[in-house]
């Protein structure tokens, strides 16, 4: 059985001009030790999806799902006090903004130790030892000294390492990293990503990596789910999706990034025309059809997933037709 099972997750946000369908019928699963990358542009609903798993959505957002289980336990019917016991201990989260994600009023040590001591009945000395051990593991030199420092005394890269150490304090089964490298320098991005990947293997955790960077996905993900306008348009093993991208949107995304050795110098990079549709009101058919080069009248009709390969399917009714042509 999968560690995390999500079926038909829906997130609606009531607004003044109508119901905003931020996430519609998203399904995926994550096994132990596996890395799932959720890819999409800003506003595609990928961050909301990750917050929905942790039940940390903003109060206005309403979450529904057919199934949402973690290690066999139903999260939908779980009450807040039980959910709180899971949060931080068995599923932990790393956020996009290391600069603002740590409390400016408390020392690094205080915030690290608190993460362990709110779940496990351990003394200050033990918690301290674990904090030092993890700070060293995430590559922070002089860990003992860092414990006494405040967030504003650390660089963005160091703060993100602290956030990672904090997420690992209780040895979680699942770690959700929401754009963990977006706010960092390019050189630091690669280090942090490498670190996350190594730690995941070392601790035997499952990881959900939320990102808009396909380059990141290619390096660390086992599985990919591409999100567009609140829906997963294509999902499958990372290798298969990269080798045979089947949704026009996925292909558009891949054409946007240069591949060393494959993209010839001077070749113009691709761009996806148009912009994200407004998600307020009922959405019928494929949300991408206005930007799609292959759009046909039937794209306004009901959508379904079409299998491409084992475990690889695509939410495009034209995929079969195009496959037949190819």
């Amino acid at each position: 059985m999968a560690l995390l099972e999500v079926q038909d997750l829906v997130i609606d946000i009531p607004t003044a001009s109508g119901l905003l369908h931020a996430v519609s019928e998203v399904s995926f699963s994550v096994d132990r030790g596996e890395t799932l990358a959720i890819v999409g542009e800003s506003g595609s609903g990928k961050s909301l999806t990750s917050l929905a798993i942790m039940d940390l959505l903003p109060r206005v957002a309403k979450r529904r799902a057919a199934t949402l289980t973690f290690d066999g336990t139903d999260l939908l019917s779980m009450r807040e006090p039980e959910m709180r016991k899971l949060r931080g201990s068995r599923m932990a989260m790393i956020f996009q903004e290391p600069m603002t994600s740590l409390n400016p009023a408390y020392t690094i040590g205080n915030q690290l130790m608190e993460a362990l001591r709110c779940h496990e009945d351990v003394g200050a000395e033990k918690a301290r030892a674990r904090a030092v051990e993890l700070l060293e593991r995430v590559g922070i030199a002089g860990a003992e000294r860092r414990l006494l420092q405040y967030p504003h005394q650390l660089s963005g890269g160091l703060r993100q390492r602290v956030m990672i150490a904090m997420a690992l304090m209780c040895k979680p089964d699942l770690i959700i990293a929401d754009e963990p490298t977006t706010a960092l320098d390019v050189t630091i991005q690669a280090q942090i990503l490498r670190l996350l990947h190594d730690l995941k293997k070392e601790f035997g955790m499952a990881m959900i990596l939320v990102t808009h960077d396909l380059g990141v996905v290619a390096r660390v993900a086992d599985k990919v789910a591409v999100m567009y306008a609140g829906a997963i348009v294509e999902r499958g093993p990372a290798r298969a999706v990269f080798k045979a991208p089947s949704h026009p949107y996925t292909r558009g995304l891949l054409n946007c990034i240069p591949v060393p050795g494959r993209t010839a110098p001077g070749t113009p990079l691709g761009a996806i025309r148009g912009q994200l549709p407004n998600l307020i009101g009922r959405l019928e058919g494929c949300a991408f059809r206005d930007r799609c080069d292959f759009a046909a009248p039937e794209c306004s009709g009901p959508m379904r997933y079409v299998p491409v390969d084992a475990g690889h399917d695509v939410r495009c009714i034209r995929a079969e037709a195009r496959k037949a042509v190819a």
């Binding site: 603002t100 409390n103 709110c118 779940h119």
Partner: peptide
């Protein structure tokens, strides 16, 4: 953001409000 972090740690509402927010 740090309040979201505090909640993601699994801290109780009391600790989140009084330790992390009020301070």
């Amino acid at each position: 953001d740090y309040i979201r972090t505090a909640r993601a740690k699994g801290l109780s509402p009391g600790v989140v409000i009084f330790k992390h927010a009020l301070r």
